[in-house]
Design a protein around this nucleic acid. Structure first.
Lengths: 212, 212
DNA sequence: CACGTTCAGTTACCGGCGTTCACTCGCCGA
DNA sequence: TCGGCGAGTGAACGCCGGTAACTGAACGTG
């Protein structure tokens, strides 16, 4: 426990305090409320102090994001037990939309705001691990359905299929978050749309003689 | 042609100049470049002058948006000639995604940014007219497919179906615009995803014995 | 123990943002 | 001719993200 260790630990703790304050602000008042000054106020620091821990606001926000990706992947654990791959695909889609509705601010940050271009190799622990990477989870479920011959024989690209299914549920979630309050369209409930998009896509990918 | 008329006309012209300048800025440098000061610079006015024509920046941006909705609806005119309703649904979806890819900034503004809450009745000319309202167009195509018995008999809600199809193509477009440059996922091309999502959804809604 | 170094955090600033407000000044109606 | 109206100005306000020079306490080392 050298002094250097202690300083490193304290540094990590401060960094965590910053992230926690940002998360609270973010979850309670939305993206616009997340301001370097307001974060600093919340932890009784000076705005400039934050720049000792994060190169800029983008990187701070991205750090917040990384944890949320894990939270989403963790949620999929509850559907991993569904035995039939087709059912599991549907359950994954519904769980995904539920996550978006329950955590709109986080979802907006994760999938609805353009990435502040991260040219560097974004290698991050958990990439490809279905337990920590939501996309990998979806892909693996799709791959299993393909392997079991439950899908149309002309659909063989698990990545393309996973991305298509993702697009479907993302579309429902994104329209819900972006268009809520819109009066132009006679919107059906988000639950109905979630059910419909999973139902339609499942029908669209399942092999001819599949159940349902 | 009373002087009052002339002043009203000049006022409308100035308003148009503001919108045009904003559009140019917007299309060429993206959302972040659209600044009251930069718009004013472009038309050699003072920033404060803009507030004689628009109550605030939100309203100015919304005015831009309204025209873009018409542009999208106008694009659907090219697919309105496709004879078979099922084919027309697919063509509409592909045309929608093409619009999003070709005008990413406008698309982002129209469907990817939260609405600055417009509590007032948003009644706007063209609402419900398939030629000027993209949603109405999609809905009418779906309704025709239903009427012809081309869809699964359990699918009867044209609005719910239209919103589901919209979600699908919006998902593809939104992920493309938001995630471009992402290295986490082995993305297939947006063309492939566009084709796949329309193909899957069409399979998912078409009646058993339908073509294809 | 004393001295130079390290470094988290502060102070004071920069340029830019949306927006407001008191004002000018030319045109119009009476 | 003259009063008012209204488009446009100039200067300011309070925010924002970000930077550079600094302070002061803790630290390793002679």
């Amino acid at each position: 426990m050298t002094p250097a260790d202690r300083r490193a630990r304290e540094r990590a703790e401060t960094q965590q305090k910053i992230l926690d304050a940002a998360r609270v602000l973010f979850a309670s008042e939305g993206y616009a409320a997340v301001t370097m000054r307001r974060i600093a106020d919340a932890i009784e620091y000076t705005p400039a102090a934050l720049y000792n821990h994060f190169p800029d606001k983008d990187e701070l926000i991205r750090s917040l994001c990384r944890l949320d990706y894990l939270a989403l992947a963790a949620r999929f654990a509850t559907v991993a037990t569904v035995p039939d791959p087709l059912d599991r695909i549907a359950a994954t889609g519904l769980e995904y939309i539920r996550f978006a509705i329950e955590h709109p601010n986080h979802y907006r940050l994760m999938f609805l705001t353009p990435p502040p271009v991260d040219d560097s190799a974004v290698t991050f622990e958990g990439h490809g691990d279905p337990h920590r990477d939501g996309y990998a989870f979806l892909r693996s479920v799709v791959a299993e359905a393909i392997a079991r011959g439950q899908l149309r024989p002309d659909l063989t690209d698990a990545d393309l299929l996973a991305q298509t299914l993702w697009a479907g549920v993302h579309g429902v979630a994104a329209l819900e978050l972006t268009m809520q309050g819109d009066q132009w369209v006679p919107w059906r409930t988000v639950e109905a749309r979630a059910r419909m998009v999973t139902d339609v896509m499942l029908h669209g990918i399942a092999a001819q003689g599949a159940k349902r």
